[in-house]
Design a protein around this nucleic acid. Structure first.
Length: 316
DNA sequence: GGAATTTGACCCTA
DNA sequence: TAGGGTCAAATTCC
């Protein structure tokens, strides 16, 4: 997958590229579906694994195109957040006697150094200490602030966690700085590194033991099908741990078998970019029953609608 | 008793 | 100046 030059990516060509990649992905998914439905009679010489890798490549390429495009139009066209509303912290500052003068003691960090993930859990395997919580304007849920427990050993990693207004079971986690400590994850997680050179390329390689930084990780989240029968549900509860532990051992195998076990994989890719880009380009891949749906975070769009992409992305 | 969390105050940046 | 990030004392948990 090549990094696209944002300078040369013309307004029309980026759309075409995206459409081409997504259509390619859809076709490959159709082939994979046929193969999975009837493995014995399939004519395709390509293996299921190769097909799935190809699907991921298509989505990754699409994301790369989208990311590049957002970089180009970026902040100039993003409407400013409404700054109206009343102040939550009112009153003049009353400096208590004996309170240290904190002027100049910290600098607000730049959002461009951040990475964002969307996940159904706050857990990421690292040890964090909460140091603050804040009510955010126009947000139903407070934002929680965490720093690495090894802060006093020099580790500067911090993260902010906030529930997503539109989907309160999901958490948006923003990471700042990398872990410089030698911390090991507290619990095993299915975290798969993407290509360090190509941030949007999803790979199936095992995570590198020496690097627990969240940059460009891809997480697989699980959720249950709503339409499971009660019996299935019970069985499912019993096998939850088994399913998850097998996932840890062989994510690929589990991915291939998830549909029958009542789980649907959602792949969340992390984009290193400006905050707006993160919102637009954080994407999931829903292996849903209507398998022609490409699930983008924030909007679900039918691949067949891509011809009308101007309506889908009027911003650009 | 130490570690972790809560919470109000302080201060920086847009 | 409003909104949000961090500090640190107080409180809670183990």
């Amino acid at each position: 997958m090549g990094c696209l030059d944002t300078e040369t990516l013309h307004a029309e060509s980026w759309k075409r590229l995206m459409v081409v990649e997504l259509l390619k992905g859809r076709d490959t998914a159709t082939r994979l579906r046929a193969l999975l439905q009837d493995p014995r009679s399939h004519q395709d010489p390509v293996s299921a694994e190769q097909l799935a890798v190809e699907i991921f490549r298509s989505f990754s390429e699409s994301l790369s195109v989208l990311s590049s495009r957002v970089d180009v139009v970026g902040s100039a066209q993003i409407p400013a957040v409404d700054s109206g509303g009343s102040s939550s912290c009112s009153g003049e500052s009353k400096k208590k006697p004996g309170v240290k003068d904190r002027r100049g003691c910290y600098k607000r960090r730049r959002t461009s150094d951040s990475r964002v993930t969307v996940s159904s859990t706050m857990e990421d395997g690292c040890a964090w200490r909460k140091y603050g919580q804040k009510v955010i304007l126009n947000s139903e849920y407070p934002r929680c602030y965490y720093r690495c427990t090894h802060k006093y050993e020099g580790c500067k990693a911090t993260k902010q966690v906030q529930r997503i207004k539109e989907d309160p079971v999901m958490y948006q986690t923003t990471y700042f700085s990398n872990h410089t400590c030698k911390e090991t994850p507290r619990a095993p997680h299915l975290i798969i590194d993407s290509d360090p050179v190509e941030p949007n390329l999803i790979s199936f390689q095992a995570p590198k033991a020496q690097d627990h930084t969240p940059t460009n990780l891809v997480k697989q989240e699980l959720y249950k099908e709503d339409n499971l029968s009660e019996d299935q549900d019970q069985d499912q509860d019993l096998s939850d741990d088994q399913a998850k532990s097998s996932l840890l051992q062989d994510p690929w195998q589990e991915f291939m078998g998830l549909e029958s076990s009542g789980y649907k994989p959602v792949w969340t890719t992390m984009i290193t970019s400006s905050s707006y880009q993160e919102e637009v380009a954080s994407a999931g891949f829903h292996h849903s029953s209507d398998d022609q749906t490409a699930g983008l975070y924030g909007l679900d769009l039918e691949v067949d609608q891509l011809g009308d992409i101007d309506n889908i992305f009027p911003l650009f």
